[in-house]
């Protein structure tokens, strides 16, 4: 009976010991992925901000500029591109919508970002775009890969429509979470006018026809929770200038936009809460379960060996259970 029990324990010991590396190194990379149906929104604010008045072509300071960033996973397109490429794909249709203090639209820039659901490597398709222009992204955008590393990444810039390094600048604590801080500086670069302009009658084409060019620079900052790769907070010091041409009269340049954009408090709170819960799920598969199963496997193996050793005593019996010797007569 004891022999049978030790064999069952041995089977369970091997089961759990084998499950430990299988879960971490086989199941986790295949199961952990960005869901293709994700929908997320975030609001960022610049208080105050400088905006150009297209009526007078003069910059003016406003109390607040809000940017609503929406990400929407397109499941049908993910399946289509997934079938074509043979990969597990996520398609995010996004919109960065900026609104002035009067509630009027300041800019409206759509994007389609396509990436591998597991590794977050970019996947290319003819529908991949930024502000209506076909692009071929390198690197990441919006989110870092699961188990983010302490290194520089390539990050796609929507306005320049190219990727540039975003540098790892150290580990910080953000509202009780250990986060990696990343920073990217895009130097002054000439960019296209946005496809949709805020004033009727003014188009990107009509502005370009005046010879006045749009220049842009930004310093982008992200605080990224490394287990999930999710940014829990973001800031951007963003500046745009119109330079040269006939539109500015005798001026060399005019500020088109300037502001220090920060994530709104309610979205910081909800993002931190979401990331804290998702972090536990990832840790369950990468740490808690693998180590727990390994410990359980070792314990069961020790128990199986102990029972086996006891069952192999010469008489095959437990000494405690042996009958007492007969009394010896004097």
């Amino acid at each position: 009976m004891r022999r049978k029990a030790s064999l069952v324990l041995l089977a369970f010991a091997v089961f759990f010991a084998a499950l430990s590396p299988l879960l971490r190194f086989y199941a986790f990379p295949r199961l952990a992925k960005i869901p293709p149906s994700q929908y997320q929104e975030a609001v960022l604010e610049a208080k105050p901000a400088t905006l150009i008045d297209y009526g007078t072509m003069q910059p003016k300071e406003v109390d607040k500029l809000s940017i609503v960033q929406t990400l929407k996973g397109n499941v049908e397109e993910a399946e289509r591109i997934g079938k074509r490429t043979g990969r597990d794909v996520v398609v995010w249709d996004t919109l960065a919508y900026a609104e002035g203090p009067d509630g009027k639209m300041v800019s409206k820039i759509p994007e389609r970002y396509i990436f591998d659901a597991h590794t977050q490597e970019p996947v290319h398709d003819k529908t991949e775009m930024a502000d209506g222009h076909e692009v071929k992204r390198e690197g990441i955008e919006f989110k870092w890969p699961l188990l983010t590393e302490k290194r520089d990444y390539d990050y796609f810039d929507l306005r320049v429509r190219k990727s540039a390094p975003i540098h790892y600048k150290g580990t910080r604590n953000f509202r009780g979470l250990e986060v990696y801080y990343f920073e990217q500086t895009i130097p002054w670069t000439q960019v296209d006018y946005p496809s949709v302009m805020p004033v009727k009658g003014i188009t990107a084409k009509s502005l370009a026809g005046t010879g006045t060019k749009l220049w842009y620079t930004t310093v982008r900052k992200f605080w990224v929770e490394p287990v999930t790769g999710a940014p829990v907070y973001g800031e951007e010091i963003h500046e745009e200038e119109m330079r040269g041409g006939t539109l500015l009269g005798d001026r060399d340049k005019v500020t088109a936009f300037a502001g220090h954009v920060k994530m709104r408090e309610d979205y910081i709170r909800s993002t931190v809460d979401l990331v804290k819960s998702q972090r536990q799920l990832v840790l369950l598969m990468t740490s808690y379960l693998p180590w727990g199963f390994l410990g359980l496997g070792i314990t069961l193996l020790a128990l199986a060996l102990f029972l086996e050793a006891r069952s192999r005593r010469p008489d095959g019996q437990d000494p405690a259970r042996q009958p007492a010797p007969d009394p010896v007569e004097a």
Binding site: P36, Y39, E41, T70, K72, E79, Y97, M105
Partner: peptide, 11 residues
């Protein structure tokens, strides 16, 4: 995989 959210991109 789930389904595409019916919610719009916010304006």
């Amino acid at each position: 995989a789930g389904e595409t959210s019916p919610k719009p991109l916010l304006t």
